[in-house]
Amino acid sequence: MSRRSRVNTESTDAELDMTPMLDVVFILLIFFIVTSVFVKEPGTEIFRPEAALTEGQKPSMLVAVTSADEIWVNRNVYELSQLRGVFEQMRQENPLAKAMIQGDAEAPIGTVLDVQELLMDMGIDVHVSTQEP
């Protein structure tokens, strides 16, 4: 006579439902993408002039004027005549945009002032970046 065990020894295939875990992962991914802050850089290194008073600004537009009289916006070089279209496009993306001009200490002051005047004519709040002495 054979004895039967009371314990079920047959293995059953147990499957885990991964859908809730994937939902949580995608929700976290979306959260981090939406809340991240991207640093904007003009695309070139600027040696700013020194000033006694500086304020902490967080502009959404960065414009750099180099000592070689180049105007950099979003890692691209533009002529002064092309800037209005570039600024209008950036303004459409962010209507409350504020601009910061980073003029090299050796940059022609006329170019910096022309860029500042263009931004002011478009109604964009603009500041010129300096560094503390």
Rank of each mutant, 00 (worst) to 15 (best):
K58V: 13
K58I: 13
K58N: 15
K58L: 15
P59E: 07
P59Y: 04
S60Q: 12
M61T: 07
M61D: 04
L62K: 07
L62H: 05
L62N: 06
L62E: 05
V63K: 00
V63C: 02
V63E: 00
A64Y: 00
V65W: 00
S67D: 14
S67P: 07
S67A: 15
A68N: 15
A68I: 13
D69E: 13
D69L: 07
D69F: 06
E70S: 06
I71H: 00
I71V: 12
I71P: 00
W72A: 02
W72S: 02
W72Q: 03
W72I: 03
V73D: 01
V73Q: 01
N74E: 15
N74I: 07
N74D: 15
N74M: 10
N76G: 10
V77C: 05
V77S: 04
V77K: 02
Y78T: 01
Y78V: 02
E79D: 15
L80F: 07
L80Q: 10
L80A: 11
S81F: 08
S81C: 08
S81G: 08
S81H: 08
S81E: 09
Q82G: 05
Q82M: 05
Q82I: 03
L83I: 04
L83R: 02
L83W: 01
L83T: 03
L83V: 05
L83Y: 03
R84Y: 11
R84G: 08
R84S: 11
R84A: 12
R84E: 15
G85E: 09
G85M: 06
F87Q: 01
F87A: 03
E88K: 14
E88H: 10
E88T: 12
E88F: 09
E88I: 10
E88Q: 14
Q89I: 09
Q89G: 12
Q89L: 12
R91P: 04
Q92W: 11
Q92K: 15
E93L: 14
E93P: 08
E93R: 14
E93C: 10
E93G: 13
N94V: 12
N94E: 14
N94S: 15
N94H: 14
P95E: 08
P95Q: 09
P95K: 09
L96P: 05
L96N: 13
A97R: 06
A97M: 14
A97H: 09
A97F: 08
K98N: 12
K98R: 14
A99K: 02
A99G: 07
A99L: 06
A99W: 00
